[in-house]
Design a protein around this nucleic acid. Sequence first.
DNA 1: GCATTTCCCTGACTAAAGTCAGAGATATGT
DNA 2: ACATATCTCTGACTTTAGTCAGGGAAATGC
Lengths: 302, 302
Amino acid sequence: MSNEPEREAVDTVRAFNRTVTSRIGALQDHYLGSDRSLGSSRVLWEVSGDGVDVRAIRERLELDSGYLSRLLRSLEREGLVTVVGSAADSRVRTVQPTAAGRAERAELDRRSDELAASVLAPLSDGQRARLVDAMGTVMRLLEAGLVQVEPADAASDDARRCLAAYYAELARRFPGGFDPGRSLHPDTHEFAEPSGLFVLARLHGRAIGCGAVLFHDDAPAYIKRMWVDDAVRGMGVGRRILVALEQAARDHGAASVTLETNASLTEAIAMYRAAGYVEVEPFNDEVYADHWFEKPLAPAVG
Amino acid sequence: MSNEPEREAVDTVRAFNRTVTSRIGALQDHYLGSDRSLGSSRVLWEVSGDGVDVRAIRERLELDSGYLSRLLRSLEREGLVTVVGSAADSRVRTVQPTAAGRAERAELDRRSDELAASVLAPLSDGQRARLVDAMGTVMRLLEAGLVQVEPADAASDDARRCLAAYYAELARRFPGGFDPGRSLHPDTHEFAEPSGLFVLARLHGRAIGCGAVLFHDDAPAYIKRMWVDDAVRGMGVGRRILVALEQAARDHGAASVTLETNASLTEAIAMYRAAGYVEVEPFNDEVYADHWFEKPLAPAVG
DNA sequence: GCATTTCCCTGACTAAAGTCAGAGATATGT
DNA sequence: ACATATCTCTGACTTTAGTCAGGGAAATGC
């Protein structure tokens, strides 16, 4: 997306990496540096509530199975966890925290809090507020960079989940509710090559947004079912889905794209306008729509 | 400073630590993960230009002397550095990069750039600008938390340096220049117990600000020589020096503090006002002053 | 001039972190 | 039923990162 990052921006990111890793690292060594090794601590941290499969820990921490096995033996020796066979599949083993393990975990938690508080402690109230705000921004944007927008089967589980969430949200937000059956194009099978395309946005593998487009040969392409998970709004995911769909329309020779929406979806309308969409006369009889938009597409280059 | 950090703020800091270390860490492993160990890379990184003393590297990276020695031998074996005796002191040895070492260092640099760019690459221009800005804020405030304000000898080298920088700045900013000899209290020996106090602000050991106070028994205490390094302005250092001096005045039984300043020092005046100082009639004949301030002190508690 | 300190080095050691090759038990596909 | 795959474990190994004690050469203090 966009052009090459600027020199100055790259330098800031590098300086940031240095500063943050050294500061956080130094504190971590100081506070969390109990007598337990980092490896054991990380494993202990993963052993929550009423048991976790060994396999799950291995995947989460990306540990070698032999290595993890040894770490678990040492935690067992210390009386912090017990490893028992799983009921469902007796090849699988489940790790459960003992009372002592739970206490140790709470202690780690307490130190983690202390560490975080020590970052804030020397600051004034105003500085704290600014730091917390800036940290939130950094996190959101680092995550935003990890979002991947890719074509997907509209009938897949992930796609179904997204569409269900979309419909549920419309039902919640539209004054008169929402029934997918009364809307145009209720069937998703059209959203596949060659008549259309369905895309999913993913973050850490989880589907967090979707969008679809229908190609109409000479006529404008038609965008539908744009949705982004509440938790990741404001991270530019919608914009990226839109860009992907527009690119697909362009590749199919469309000279413009159209879409319709509802006045209650204010943030979506704002995004469409910002992306270059202009309001036009109604071009279909979608019962749930009260605003219709169109955007001309620059022809594909290269 | 200030009260206990809030639960929500602490959680944000913890989430930030997790996100940043995992994201940066994952990228670092991926990009910088050459065949060289982290230890060697760090040492190679320190070996710049025309030679660095072994001692300097040891101090910077806080390495054991035996360990560093071994790392240098391995870099030597790889033909990346040469270690020669120092001209000035033949106990000291100096490490110089070879051509291959320089190339390797440039390669590390390139990968570091690539790593930073990969964080920015997927973002839109607006998101990039916001990320860079927020990263800057986080860095500044993390650093701000490391600033230490402590009593110091006004005749020490660090104090002299600060005062010299202060005088130089006044000379630059006052329309008619500045001559310390014509100002009140040109001698610094008064700024010591029991007649007064001198404090230094330090960041990573470096003196980056100063301030002094004179105690006048029943009369108001008198603050002078407040200065903060250009590079760290806006980080609340001035405020912390002021708080330390006010606390000292309070401890010596002063009911209020006074100070005078010059209209051209706008940011200082703004800070004084924000800190509760109110302008009063001139109370001395400091030739460089045109504004006089006073602040009542709440009596010491506990 | 001599004791002390500084600087770097070597040797000997340890703990942590991780890799790899199988073995044994269990589940699954056909 | 049988081959194949999955899951965890043990044993044997390596690399990395580090610590500690002390030695030799040079500089410094008195």
